[in-house]
Design a binder for these strands. Structure first.
Length: 259
DNA sequence: AACAATGACAACCGCGTCACT
DNA sequence: CAGTGACGCGGTTGTCATTGT
């Protein structure tokens, strides 16, 4: 890039690299006389050997009189963190909320000071939390399936004894399976999708707002993590669904586990 | 003291948008 | 309506300073 060309040299007649005090003075004088804008005229009118783009950048990021020089304050930092969480890398938008600070300044500050902080924040560490939860759910699912197998074995023993209602029991177990397994799968995958049916929304509430079918969150990120961090709530809903299934099998099988 | 690694900041580049012709 | 230039934005790079080994 410019490094290959060297700083302060002329490329197609334009100077590049760090600005000198003399150039700053010329540019400041130009803006004082003509105002901001028409940057491509600067070279001709101010006698600068800089292109318009470079002049605009120098003025906006360094020479503007309303710029606040010096360290970003803790208060400003918290604002940046909050606004970045909301808007992402929309630096100019963030800069509008911080008078005297430029988008470039905020962008640089974010990269050097806040990026690591953000990655180490709870919001970020919750990704590992998600992995842990998924592992736990996998274990629970396996445990549940094992218990089902044991229950089926017990039922088979019972039925060998009394030969009553085996066909009905199996059909009910199948129904139970069909209802529960997709929900267990849903819990694993729900981070990546929203409930599409009212039944799903009901089952997953209060993670999702059942009135609107759209989660009450302002950004997809919030939705994503907001949904994820309510898995405990989903657990209770799933358990209640289990309870419904249990009702299908009055006195026929051992009650399903409810953690 | 010398060197490498890292941080901080200024500046550049590419691209998208918009207004003007 | 297409072409063109100006401008703004976000990403990236270069340079210097500081810190660690």
């Amino acid at each position: 890039m410019a490094g290959k060309l060297g700083w302060g040299i002329l490329e197609e007649g334009w100077r590049k690299g760090p600005w000198t005090a003399e150039e700053d003075k010329l540019l400041t004088e130009y803006v004082r006389l003509h105002g901001e804008g028409r940057w491509n005229s600067v070279a001709r009118l101010a006698g600068l050997r800089r292109n318009g783009k470079s002049c605009r950048l120098r003025w906006v990021n360094y020479l503007r009189p309303d710029l606040k020089r010096g360290q970003i304050t803790p208060h400003e930092e918290s604002i940046i963190m909050e606004l970045h969480a909301r808007w992402g890398n929309r630096w100019s938008t963030i800069a509008r909320s911080l008078p005297g600070r430029t988008d470039n300044e905020i962008k640089n500050y974010w990269r050097t000071h806040l990026k690591k902080k953000s990655e180490a924040s709870p919001e970020h560490s919750e990704r590992s939390k998600a992995r842990l939860l998924r592992q736990q759910m996998q274990q629970k699912r396996q445990q549940f399936q094992l218990q089902q197998q044991q229950q089926q074995q017990q039922l088979q023993k019972k039925n060998q004894q009394n030969q009553v209602g085996m066909k009905k029991i199996m059909s009910l177990l199948d129904e139970c399976d069909h209802r529960l397994l997709p929900l267990v799968q849903e819990r694993e995958d729900m981070v990546f999708m929203y409930p599409s049916t009212s039944e799903e929304q009901c089952l997953l509430s209060p993670v999702f707002n059942s009135d609107t079918s759209v989660p009450e969150a302002s950004s997809s990120e919030e939705i994503l993590w907001g949904g994820l961090w309510n898995l405990d709530d989903v657990q209770s809903n799933l358990d209640s669904t289990c309870a419904t299934s249990k009702a299908c099998l009055p006195n026929m099988i051992t009650p399903l586990p409810s953690n």
